[in-house]
Simulated assay, not measured.
Amino acid sequence: MVRVLFLGGLGRSGTTLLERLLGELPGVCPLGEVVHLWERDIAGDERCGCGSHFSDCEFWRAVGEKAFGGWHHVDVWRVLALRQAVERTRYIPRLASVRMTAAQRLLVEEYADWYARLYEAAAVVSGASVLVDSSKHAALAYCLRYAPSVDLRVVHMVRDSRGVAYSWTKKVSRPETDGAQEMTRYSPSRSALLWNAHNTAFSVLHRCGVPVQRVRYEELLESPSSTLGAIASFAGLTPPDVSFVKNGTAELGPCHSAAGNPMRFTVGPVPLRRDDAWRTALPGRQRRVVSALTAPLLGVYGYRGAR
């Protein structure tokens, strides 16, 4: 079986930073947001985290050959059609239920098998014992339960909803498009509703037999070494060497993260400090709206006293 550490949660919660840090641990290979690889990389030939276009990246070329005999053998539109048919947030109750019809289950298993074949090839090419998929989508995590060759373990990344809401309002260029496109933006109220939906889905995933470990963004930044050690233990790794983290800075090497936040292109020293700009930059009315909409889960996750 191939062991996959799936990073889940709503975007702008720190999953890319966590993926990059985990990628520095021995025996770990970060793959990026594999959920977007089919359209953005195989079909769109966007840039890999190493800087090369996907079609020119030796790592991904080798993975494609091992998994499918070459990426040209992948029916991207079939994968995307399956995604629309089975991997949607509204389908999570069905994916979590034992009452799924035989026809539905066949579609889910076919969809999960595309990922399983890719994971297995990436494990061989990289020689890693643990792969990191930072796709974040809760519905995908539920689908991956149906891939018997995948040892799925989920890290549920949580960040204060107000920090997430503020981050979604900011303009962020996508460097892989040479600044021609910006990342998606949401209104604070919209991001608050998404924050509730995504985090609730991951909070109950363990009931389906999937190991889940919750990590708070704020704790990762306050105690990166101990947090990484706990996640490594959860992933079944020996106590890791975290000497790349010193004095509040992490030294990051190149990676082959296929899609995701622009931070995947970052190489060199990265300051590990919390981004709490929302406390002053998010207008008071918007902050109160987000607080009200997310109040129950804020308390569950230990943010009750935050203002």
Rank of each mutant, 00 (worst) to 15 (best):
A235N: 11
A250K: 07
P240D: 12
D241T: 01
V267F: 13
P262L: 02
G268F: 09
S226H: 01
S233D: 12
L237W: 02
P269S: 09
P269K: 02
W278E: 12
A277I: 00
P240Q: 08
A232M: 06
H256T: 03
A281Q: 14
F265K: 05
P240E: 12
G248F: 06
C255V: 14
G236N: 09
D241Y: 01
P262A: 07
G248K: 04
P254N: 11
G260T: 05
T238C: 13
N261M: 02
D241H: 01
L228M: 10
P269D: 07
A258R: 04
C255N: 14
A230P: 01
T227H: 02
R274H: 08
D276F: 01
G268P: 12
G253H: 05
P224A: 06
N247D: 15
A281E: 15
M263K: 13
L252K: 07
P240A: 09
A235H: 11
L228C: 08
C255R: 13
A232G: 08
L272P: 12
S225T: 12
V242K: 06
D276H: 04
M263V: 06
L282G: 03
T238M: 13
A235V: 06
V245T: 00
T280S: 15
L237T: 01
R273G: 13
P271W: 01
G229C: 05
D275H: 08
M263I: 10
T227Y: 03
P224W: 08
A235T: 07
P254F: 05
F244E: 14
D241P: 01
W278V: 04
P262H: 00
V267Q: 15
P224H: 04
G236V: 00
P239D: 10
C255P: 00
E251V: 03
A259C: 09
T249I: 15
F244V: 10
L282C: 10
L237C: 01
T249R: 14
F244T: 08
L252F: 05
C255H: 11
A277K: 12
A230H: 00
P254L: 11
D276L: 14
T280A: 14
D241F: 02
D275Q: 10
L228N: 06
P269G: 05
T280N: 13
V245W: 00
R273D: 13
E251Y: 08
D276R: 05
P271T: 03
S225F: 06
N247H: 13
V242H: 02
D275K: 04
A250C: 11
G248S: 07
G236H: 03
V270S: 05
V245R: 02
W278K: 09
I231H: 02
P262I: 00
G236T: 05
S257A: 15
F244H: 11
W278A: 09
V270P: 04
S257K: 02
W278H: 12
H256K: 09
G248R: 06
R273Y: 06
V245S: 07
T249G: 04
A230V: 01
S226G: 01
R279W: 05
R273A: 14
S257D: 14
F244K: 11
